[in-house]
Computed example of a mutant assay.
Amino acid sequence: MNQTQTIKKNTRVELYDWIRVIATIFVVIGHAAYLKIVTANGGINYILPSQLSPTYNGFLLSSFRFLAIWVYTFHMPLFFFLSGAVLGLKPIGQLFSFIKSKTHRLIIPYLLVALFFMFPIKYLGNFYTYSGLSKAIISFFTGFGGSDEGHLWFLIALFWCLIIFVCITKILDKLHSNHPIIILFICIIVSQFSIRYITFSFLQISTSLYYIQWLALGYLFESCRRRYTIPYSYSILISIFIILIYLLAYRIISPHYNISIIAGIIFSIALSVVLSPLFQLIKNKYSMHYNNFIKRLFDIYLFHDPLEYIIIRIFLNKNLLSTSIGCYAYLFMRTIGIILLSIMIGNIIEYVLKRISSHFSKTKKLITDIN
């Protein structure tokens, strides 16, 4: 089976759906182990109970925490890589239309989810005091007083990277030099320049542009994917090799950040191909649930992280980690439970929006008929 050539609706590549699934699971795992996070206006710093169950430091939970530390080194660059690959599937079109599309897709959720979900839920999760919450909201909308974008920083960072990236490609188009390798080289320069010389932090532009190099790498990958396939046997060997390397030399590789990211991206692509028969099986047998899950991947990203603080607060304040069952339930809720809750929230919001849209459509039709 040629996994990399399975295309739907002309431009949809199933390989990228599979990578999105893995990347989303990785980001949930990466956010599912922390007990301490400190920001300019809030944070948590939970201490494990003295009567902690041995299960918490047993093989399963310890292995999971190691996995969380590993995927955290590359899970966000992986999203930028994937965004670049998807961007390369079809012509970009006019710049104004592109900016309008990405504003609707990224900036509106960035603002609405922050104001109506992230800040209230994190407040309930003891992340903010009342005064800290007000300061965090002010800094969120002004860009001053500390960074309080939380996990939503990715949306604004991706927005900046996409806009600058498209501007670069448009300029190179006019110069007839728009080869993906040239674009990647320029984006690496932009990335390094932003780290060293861009000091203003309004809407995180100074830190956002670091990731443009990974977006450009994904764009280059898509141009190569069209010409080459990824053999299934090679994907298995690559996945096993990278896992073994990390198990044997994790302390050596981890400090080398870019190497860790590239290895993680390669691993994610290979793992997507390895798991492709499973994805196809689930799709064929449970098509409706599979399609809904793919549809809700963005919702999982939007809603999962604030829910983590609620889970931590409940389990630590109620001393539920003193038993083995409590430890297993804690692991379940911070991973699968969070995913299910995020999907449920996404479905509810979609249902409510459809009802509101339907109501306005009926009202508009009624007014038209009267007139």
Rank of each mutant, 00 (worst) to 15 (best):
I262E: 05
V113K: 09
R225C: 01
I348L: 11
P91S: 14
N57P: 08
H304G: 05
F26D: 08
F141T: 01
H179N: 14
Y16R: 00
G145A: 01
C187A: 11
V274C: 06
M118K: 08
P91L: 03
L321H: 14
I22P: 05
F127L: 08
L297Q: 11
S139I: 05
T363S: 10
T335H: 00
V71I: 11
N57R: 14
L220K: 03
F360I: 06
P49T: 02
I188Y: 12
G150P: 02
T39S: 00
T73W: 00
L115K: 11
G58S: 13
V27E: 05
R226F: 08
I29P: 03
N57A: 11
I261P: 04
R227S: 02
S287K: 15
L215N: 01
I138M: 05
C167G: 09
Y250F: 10
I253W: 00
I314A: 06
K90Q: 14
I47C: 06
L112C: 02
I47K: 14
I253Y: 02
P77N: 10
S97P: 01
F116H: 07
L15V: 15
L115H: 12
Y232N: 11
T24I: 13
G143C: 01
C161E: 04
L331Q: 05
L95G: 14
G218I: 03
Y56L: 00
F81T: 04
L244C: 14
L152A: 15
L340I: 01
I259L: 13
F303Q: 04
Y290F: 03
I345W: 06
S254L: 09
I261R: 04
S134I: 12
A157S: 12
L152I: 15
Y34H: 07
S357G: 02
A216F: 02
L281V: 11
A270D: 01
I164D: 12
A32L: 04
